[in-house]
Design a protein around this nucleic acid. Structure first.
Length: 202
DNA sequence: TATAAGATTTACT
DNA sequence: GTAAATCTTATAT
């Protein structure tokens, strides 16, 4: 029986956002929305490297009402609306004043799957959390949770002792950031393909 | 005030 | 594979 440990502040406060993005794979994202718990294993992340990253909202130190959350201390949720429809969930990292963040792009549904199905209005488990906009819907995350403390009791991360092996991780460039020029080519995207999960799907 | 673009999803051809 | 949906945010008048 593996021990479940809540991810604590020190994990988020470190200064290498790309390293943190890699380490988030296999961690379990938990939400308690209106008292209902849902959990998902993080299977895809992207790092956004603050002021020097053209793909980041905070590029060049840009500071607006929307990006303000990214300047908070590590362990804060940065949630914003994309394309007017989709709520995207990010984990803020580093110290207060440094706008680093990791976008969570997909999850493997883990607990509260019936709730996810209702929220997503589908029974297709493979698609419940298959993109950054759909996973927030499945988890009940909306922009009203922007700025939520990830060491609190609404949204948090757990370490279930899942340690992806090198063979289970793919690295590539980020998605949907063509406007970022050369920065769009950076290897900041991490994908976790669990071997036993794939076998289970035959 | 007005306009353009977006860290996407879904349905349709 | 292509395109529409859809609306907030940021930037330019």
């Amino acid at each position: 029986m593996k021990k479940i440990i809540k991810v604590e502040r020190n994990f988020y406060l470190r200064n290498d956002v790309v390293q943190i993005a890699r380490e988030l794979l296999g961690k379990v994202l938990v939400t308690r929305i209106h008292g209902i718990i849902t959990k998902g294993i993080i299977s895809e992340t992207e790092a956004y490297n603050g002021v020097v990253d053209r793909a980041s909202h905070a590029y060049g130190g840009r500071r607006t009402k929307r990006t303000e959350t990214m300047y908070k201390q590590g362990g804060t949720a940065y949630i914003y609306l994309c394309y007017g429809i989709h709520h995207l969930f990010n984990v803020v990292t580093n110290r207060e004043g440094i706008p680093h963040a990791v976008l969570v792009r997909s999850l493997i549904p883990f607990e509260g799957i019936d709730t996810m199905k209702k929220r997503r209005k589908t029974n297709d488990v493979a698609r419940l959390c298959s993109g950054p906009g759909s996973l927030t819907q499945a988890m009940g995350i909306t922009t009203s949770y922007d700025g939520t403390d990830l060491t609190g009791n609404l949204i948090w991360l757990e370490d279930h002792g899942i340690k992806p092996s090198v063979a289970e991780i793919s690295i590539s460039s980020r998605i949907g950031v063509d406007y970022a020029g050369e920065d769009a080519l950076l290897p900041y995207r991490f994908i976790y393909h669990p071997q036993d999960f794939l076998r289970g799907k035959k």
